[in-house]
Design a protein around this nucleic acid. Structure first.
Length: 739
DNA sequence: CCTGTATGTCATCCC
DNA sequence: CGGGGATGACATACA
């Protein structure tokens, strides 16, 4: 089923492409508005989202003439499809906490196919990107859920998230396919306030319109004396298409924000270029700014770091600049506007690879997950570097200027250079070390595990049980006052009976405090059971309390102290159990119990003393007993408080350690994902670059040329020297911003 | 006998 | 200024 469907789809797409190339413009898009899904489905397939094929770009660029049917290399096309599928593998970018879903949106220069599926969960990331389908040939990519068709489309390389119906015509024109990075988009929203900076950057890199800048840059290449776009030999037409697709794929793989600025910025993919091919010396010179200063440009690690830095920038809120830039792109953006022009540009001029290039085909690649998707289509559109805008801008710009041959890797360059570029080497470099990361994660995990399994759970339980106790000093006072009141009342109500004294002491303890209400009750019950004998009651209380509390506290469990030893086997042995003060009081013939001495309120206590004729020695002893008794309770409360504090601190530490471990794990996972993406990008870059051929059919030297992403999502083949210059330029910006 | 824990007591600070 | 809570330090009992 799938194969058949795929076959049909491919055939249909190819046919459409051919028509477009021939100059027959199939404006299915006009009919394929969101309101008319059926027609679209007929042509594009069911639930086709917004698939924009790069072929459209060619057609658009060439405007139907100038491109020879021969120029289309089906082999390359399918190769591109394969690459695209590979890229698609990156769709689900797993980030620690967030899942990243990427969609490849294929956009036609003329009119990118805008997904008419508002309903689909996917939000159009690039507002400009998707949009109206001017040509039937636009590959439409449906939401992933709709696999059948989407799959085929995917192969084509046109992947468009369902577009919300709000796409404007302008968006459509401008927006042609571009890769949208939801993630970046999201950030952009957050970073909206940072736009000013972006604007500045734009001025620097891309004064006015990115297109112009690109053109200028390309033409300018003084060193080589070549204007790349134009120079690219038309003989490469064969590969042009495939290259375009590949480039788009590459673009899509890289979550770079699209920005007008980017076009100017040339962060080169060159970095990704296989190092083997290039001589070290050349590399250094040619290396992009990002790479410079650290390792050889070709160093994979370095490359990864760059990518990671880019990712980091986007992912980690830190960099707003890039996001801003990306998001800020208004629909009316020059680039976007230019997009509409692209279709008109004659292919002849652009015929070179460049044209094939990605300009037209932008695939929206949203690496990031649902969150991103949820973002409004408009905002997202701006984010994606590869988005339609790129294609449009590029085509128009270069087409006229004969810069046809250039591939722009705008996003990579722009994003990497602008935002992440600078950071890549440093922060990510170290982190990239997989072994190190693993180690960290493992360590963290171990720590976390340890806490979780052993102490954490226990502590939690303990704390829960111990909830009654609070370190907050405020608690004790209130409880104390209340307890005192109760104690006084109890004491007053009951004269000096043993039971009364016992109850009063208990109540006082509750008041004292740290014991929770339940605790107090328990104590009271216990003590009541014990009967009079304050000392016993005290001991009992302590013994009673401690065990219960201890049970809750794992640490204390090992303490097997049985404080009940204080309790005589029989009440008759109470004398032995009396405290020193009890003995002293008895020796001094104190007429009332120590409980009363200790627990009676001051007034009652004084009143009690006044009732008896006591000697100085007796009064002194009574006061000492009262003082010691009070202090004893205070000491108990103090110790309890201290213990609670320690336990709470321990719990806090454990919690923090768990959080830290979790965050580190997530970080490691994120870095891994970034690394994988980088590898993919690199491989794709190499593959694409390796397929490029000059007029003579000779492959380009990686040491002399490099692929770069333009801000608009197009990919250019430029001299390394130029790439290095631009890369350096961009590298500075991000740093400045951060500062 | 040594050690660790629990508890009591004292001195002191502070409210 | 005294009562009393809080707490560090020390002493003691006990396992």
């Amino acid at each position: 089923m799938l194969s058949l469907k795929k076959y049909l789809t491919e055939g249909l797409l190819q046919f459409t492409i051919l028509l477009s190339l021939i100059g027959v413009r199939v404006d299915v898009d006009t009919y394929l508005t969101s309101q008319l899904p059926p027609l679209r489905e007929i042509i594009l397939g069911p639930s086709s989202a917004y698939t924009q094929t790069q072929f459209h770009n060619l057609r658009n660029t060439l405007d139907g003439y100038g491109i020879h049917p021969k120029s289309i290399d089906l082999d390359n096309y399918f190769t591109a499809r394969r690459l695209l599928s590979q890229v698609r593998a990156l769709d689900r970018f797993q980030v620690p906490t967030t899942e990243v879903n990427a969609w490849l949106v294929h956009r036609d220069p003329e009119g990118s196919v805008s997904g008419s599926q508002p309903s689909s969960g996917l939000a159009l990331e690039s507002s400009s990107g998707l949009q109206d389908v001017t040509g039937p040939d636009n590959g439409v990519r449906e939401s992933e859920t709709e696999q059948g068709f989407s799959e085929d489309l995917e192969d084509l390389g046109a992947v468009a998230p369902p577009v919300s119906g709000d796409l404007t015509k302008e968006d459509i024109d401008l927006g042609a396919g571009r890769e949208i990075f939801d993630y970046s988009h999201r950030q952009k929203e957050q970073d909206v306030d940072k736009e000013p900076q972006d604007g500045v950057e734009q001025e620097d890199t891309w004064p006015g319109e990115g297109e112009e800048v690109l053109a200028r840059n390309l033409l300018v290449d003084g060193e080589t004396g070549e204007s790349f776009p134009a120079q690219v030999p038309g003989g490469e037409n064969q590969t042009a298409l495939s290259l375009e697709l590949c480039l788009r794929l590459l673009e899509s793989t890289c979550p770079f924000g699209e920005n007008a600025e980017f076009p100017a910025d040339i962060s080169s993919l060159t970095e990704a270029v296989p190092s083997e091919s290039e001589p070290p010396g050349l590399q250094n010179n040619l290396l992009s700014p990002l790479l410079t200063g650290t390792e050889s440009p070709f160093d994979l690690e370095q490359q990864w770091q760059d990518l990671m830095s880019i990712m980091e920038m986007q992912a980690m809120e830190v960099n707003t600049s890039t996001n801003e830039i990306l998001y800020n792109n208004p629909p009316g953006d020059p680039l976007s506007t230019n997009y509409s022009l692209a279709p008109n540009t004659p292919i002849n001029q652009n015929v070179s690879l460049h044209q094939a290039s990605l300009g037209g085909c932008s695939q929206d690649f949203s690496l990031f997950s649902p969150e991103v998707e949820s973002l409004p289509a408009a905002s997202s559109s701006t984010l994606l570097p590869l988005g339609p805008s790129n294609s449009t801008s590029l085509n128009p710009t270069f087409g006229p200027t004969n810069l046809s041959g250039l591939f722009f890797p705008p996003q990579l360059n722009g994003t990497a250079n602008d935002t992440a570029g600078p950071e890549l080497p440093d922060p990510l470099g170290g982190l990239l070390d997989e072994a190190m990361l693993d180690e960290i994660s493992l360590m963290d995990l171990a720590i976390e595990e340890g806490f979780n399994s052993v102490q954490a759970s226990q502590l939690k339980e303990e704390f829960d049980s111990d909830s009654g106790l609070s370190l907050d000093s405020s608690h004790s006072p209130s409880s104390l006052s209340s307890s005192e009141g109760s104690s006084s009342s109890s004491s007053s109500s009951s004269s000096s009976s043993a039971s009364s004294s016992a109850s009063s002491s208990f109540s006082e303890e509750g008041a004292v405090g740290y014991s929770s209400d339940s605790e107090t009750l328990d104590l009271e019950e216990v003590e009541g059971a014990v009967g009079y004998q304050p000392e016993y009651s005290k001991f009992c209380r302590m013994s009673y309390q401690d065990p219960s509390q201890l049970s809750c506290l794992p640490y204390l469990e090992h303490v097997g102290h049985n404080h009940t030893y204080n309790m005589a086997p029989s009440a008759l042995d109470s004398d032995k159990q009396m405290s020193r003060d009890e003995h002293r009081a008895r020796a001094m013939k104190i007429p009332f119990t120590n409980d009363k001495i200790i627990n009676l309120p001051v007034e009652e206590f004084n009143e009690l003393l006044s009732k008896y004729q006591l000697s100085e020695a007796q009064l002194s002893l009574i006061r000492d007993i009262r003082r010691r008794g009070k202090n004893k309770m205070a000491a108990q409360n103090c110790r309890k408080r201290k213990l609670d504090t320690i336990l709470n601190l321990k719990r806090d530490v454990e919690d923090l350690q768990r959080d830290k471990a979790r965050l580190l794990r997530e970080k490691v996972e994120f870095l891994r994902s970034l690394r994988q993406m980088k590898q993919k990008v690199q491989s794709l870059y190499q593959e694409v670059f390796g397929r490029l051929r000059d007029e003579n059919g000779q492959p380009y030297s990686p040491s002399q040329y490099a692929l770069q992403y333009a801000g608009d999502g197009s990919v250019l083949l430029i001299p390394r020297t130029l790439a290095d210059q631009q890369a350096r330029r961009q590298e500075r910006k991000p740093k400045d911003r951060r500062k």
